[in-house]
Design a protein around this nucleic acid. Structure first.
Lengths: 209, 209
DNA sequence: CCAGAAATCTTTCCATTGTCAACATCGAAA
DNA sequence: TTTCGATGTTGACAATGGAAAGATTTCTGG
């Protein structure tokens, strides 16, 4: 194992850390990436942050609360990934819709452990306001896109439901299968080919307009 | 909490259990259903089976090996659910294809904890022969259906890849979102309406023939 | 039928983990 | 400056997975 740039203990001068809360969230992500959610340990996070094993308790009620905060941050980054992908495209609305889906899948592939925490775990408290709101914003991107394309509003028009569910299920299923290693794509598949494949598949799920 | 029919300790007469291996797998599923994968404990399984906490070691290398065996059983039951759904339909191949997808989603909804173990956890050893083979059989159902409909073989024709991936991603994404509580379908949605919705969405992912 | 071997189960022990309680240190407001 | 809340540390506890060693039963070869 060579040099890693993941956060690690850096002996500090002051008794107080200064920004332990944020440091712990970063440490939790590093812990998640290295050990996976199954091997995640709160004491490991504390060690990475260079504090004693009980220090996190002053910032997070328990280990799950720390994971909740990390998951909320994850949803914000997922939103950013989708927004960035949409902005990078200037075509019609359908193209932007597909691009946002690619952004969703890209985020999952780039952050498998985080994605798994966000969607595949009951450890974070998904009802906690910060997490629920961040998740709601991601959902809003999707419903907004569908509304723009079809003119149907998810909130008021039940007919929009099928479009929204289909689109979300498709990008989510792709993400889960890819990061779960269930799909064995060619190892050396170039980025453009990968993008084209994902885009074509996402297009199938899109609303018929 | 009222009466439960989940396996529980039944004091035994003999020193040897008789069929501890299978009993432990059943106990593991009960443990999973009640506590979730996060709260799963090997000692809890042993208690359910009515044996000491170290007894499982004689049948499973470690806790993950027990989960692997349970996951393999899960894949067999997933296969059965898909096969049953297909057999219950006598229409053209597309209808059977859609039915198998509904069987996939139904299995997930009926066994959320097991499904999560099978697809959303790194605790089972997915390379272990029993598990890998059971998973392979499920995959074969899908590729077989696509081949029957389109005449393209996944193994030899790369063009079949998109069809297979799209179909699998769609049913898998639906399953994950439904059991993750992310999709808020009307609580009282009747079974026929639910089935129609799922079928319509699966149809979108199907091959164009 | 019987003695040894193998399988199965139990008890005991240990390291790790999350959490709690008690105490120490620091900074900011009164 | 003093006091107090926020932040950090140490020590303890119960629960857990796993290893080691002993107890009990079953199997197997003579």
């Amino acid at each position: 194992m060579l040099e890693t740039d993941l956060p690690t203990a850096a002996p500090r001068k002051t008794y107080h850390h200064g920004d332990l809360r944020q440091t712990l969230i970063a440490a939790a992500e590093a812990e998640l990436i290295e050990k996976g959610l199954e091997g995640f340990s709160l004491r490991g996070c504390a060690k990475r942050a260079g504090v004693s094993h009980a220090a996190p308790a002053h910032h997070f009620k328990d280990a799950d609360a720390l994971l909740s905060a990390l998951a909320a941050e994850g949803f914000d980054r997922l939103n950013a990934s989708m927004a960035e992908a949409m902005d990078a495209v200037d075509g019609d609305m359908m193209e932007k819709f597909v691009a946002s889906g690619v952004g969703y899948v890209d985020f999952a592939c780039a952050n498998p452990a985080l994605f798994h925490l966000m969607f595949g775990s009951r450890r974070p408290d998904h009802e906690s306001p910060p997490l629920a709101e961040a998740g709601g914003r991601a959902f809003a991107v999707l419903t907004g896109n569908v509304a723009t394309m079809t003119g149907r509003d998810y909130a008021t028009d039940p007919a929009a439901g099928e479009d929204v569910i289909a689109a979300w299920a498709m990008v989510h299923g792709l993400s889960e299968l890819l990061i779960g290693g269930k799909l064995h794509l060619p190892e050396d598949m170039p980025r453009p080919a990968f993008k084209a494949l994902i885009s074509a598949i996402i297009r199938r799920s899109g609303p018929k307009i």
